Amino acid sequence: MMTVWSAAMVAGTVGCSGKPAAPAAPPPREVQVVTLAPSEVRDTGEYLGSLLSRQSVNVLPQVAGYVRRIHVRPGQKVEEGTPLIEVDAREETAALDSAQAQHNSTEVNLELARRTFARTEALYKEGLASAQELERAQAQVEAAEAASRSTAAQVTQRQVQLQFHVVRAPFSGTVGDVLVRMGDFVGATTPLTSVAQADVLEVSVAVPSERARSLKPDTQLEVLDSQGKVLLTSTLFFVAPQADPRTQLVEVKAAFRNTVGLRPSELVRARLVYSTRNALQLPALAVVRQSGQPFALVVQEKDGKTVVSRRPVKLGALGDMAYVVESGLKEGDVVAVSSLQALRDGAAVKVKPSAPGSRAEVVPTQGVAGGPGAASATGGSR
């Protein structure tokens, strides 16, 4: 029985020619593809920026004395001229009262001198007073007027000095930390608090000098959040005319209206857009690497069959899940983006249909900026 069964098996595996039959070829593997087309690519650099307030001041008193009253609390928004802190002004108030009393006295003396001059002038016209008496009366009027002006100036001076005892906000903004307490003695160099205006901020960025050579005043700058999302966009208004001699970095600045609640002195991610251009972009999923050399599997027709051809490529910076193609591919090439590890050069494939709008059908449109490899703090991408 064993002999008959073995013979039957041999007979089943031998053809008419007496040679073993060739195994059936595997069916073509289905793959997803993208068609390459030029899209906008941005040459960018990401750096650490510092936010500066266009209006920020440390508030100091202009007089010495004890803190008598604190009108504000830290973080409070104030308008221009709002009282912040009041310094004891009892001595200055007494000096003002004294100056006012002296002024009132000189006003009385002036009025008396004017009446005396009027009577003397009338007597002089009737010949009952001498010219010398008239001149003396006129001199008394002029002296009284000078004394009145002097005391009036002293009153004004005391009034101005008294105003210094109430420290007011120089402009509208937000109050910082209040550094003094009730009863503290302060002088002209004692910091009281700070007021910062955060509606319009500046972002200051230091960039390498070789990258700064291509910057222009209208270069775009983007402020990013921790996830790389663009919060605010503005353009440069300042590029330093010289580099820092110690760091060889060039300071650049942009101003923007603060609509997202950023704060002065905050450190943020900032991205400079050096230039824009059109280039092909290859999805990161479509890249196969062998010994460090990147390849792309291009789908093409050959001998009536659809096959993949492994093609070496030169890649640029990595953007949003896509590399910039420097060379090796051309517009219109169809590249496989799935099952790459199971494909070999020349393997037959079948293009897998995708739903309209799926990522496998469309060409990436994001630029170099925004990806994890867009740029470093020491230079932009290329």
Rank of each mutant, 00 (worst) to 15 (best):
L51W: 02
Q100M: 12
P61N: 02
T82F: 12
P83Q: 05
F117C: 05
Y124D: 08
L48A: 09
E92H: 12
I85L: 06
V57H: 00
E86V: 10
L60H: 10
L60P: 04
T116P: 06
R115A: 08
V67R: 00
T106W: 00
A118N: 11
E80H: 09
T106K: 01
G45S: 03
R68S: 10
L60E: 02
R69P: 01
L112M: 11
D97R: 15
T116W: 08
L96N: 07
R42N: 10
T106Q: 06
G49A: 05
Y47D: 05
D97Q: 15
L96G: 06
L48H: 09
V78W: 02
L51C: 09
I70V: 14
A113W: 01
L112A: 15
L51H: 04
R42A: 12
G45T: 07
R54C: 12
E46H: 07
E111C: 01
I70E: 00
E91F: 05
S50Q: 15
K77W: 14
G75I: 10
T93N: 07
T44F: 03
L123E: 10
Y124W: 14
N58Y: 07
I70T: 09
I85F: 01
Q76W: 06
Q100R: 13
Q100T: 11
D88G: 04
Q100E: 09
K125M: 14
P61F: 00
I70F: 04
R90D: 03
H103N: 08
A64N: 06
E92F: 10
Q76C: 00
E46I: 12
D88K: 06
T120I: 15
R42M: 10
H103D: 08
Q55R: 08
A113Y: 04
T106A: 08
T116M: 11
Q62G: 08
L112E: 13
A94N: 07
I85S: 03
G81W: 09
S105M: 08
R114L: 11
R90E: 05
T93W: 08
K77L: 15
A101F: 03
V63W: 01
G45M: 07
K77R: 15
L52I: 11
R115Y: 13
V87F: 01
T44W: 05
E126K: 09
A99S: 07
A99I: 03
S53Y: 00
G49N: 00
Q62N: 09
A99K: 02
V87E: 01
Q76E: 13
E91I: 06
S53F: 02
S105C: 06
A64I: 03
Y47S: 03
N109V: 13
G49M: 07
L60K: 05
E121F: 03
V87T: 04
V63I: 05
E46D: 09
Y124G: 11
E80L: 09
R90M: 05
S53W: 01
V108C: 03
E91N: 13
T93F: 09
A95D: 05
L60R: 06
D97M: 14
E91W: 04
Q100W: 07
E86F: 02
T116Y: 11
I70D: 06
E46N: 10
R90N: 03
T120H: 02
K77Q: 14
F117L: 13
L52M: 12
S50N: 14
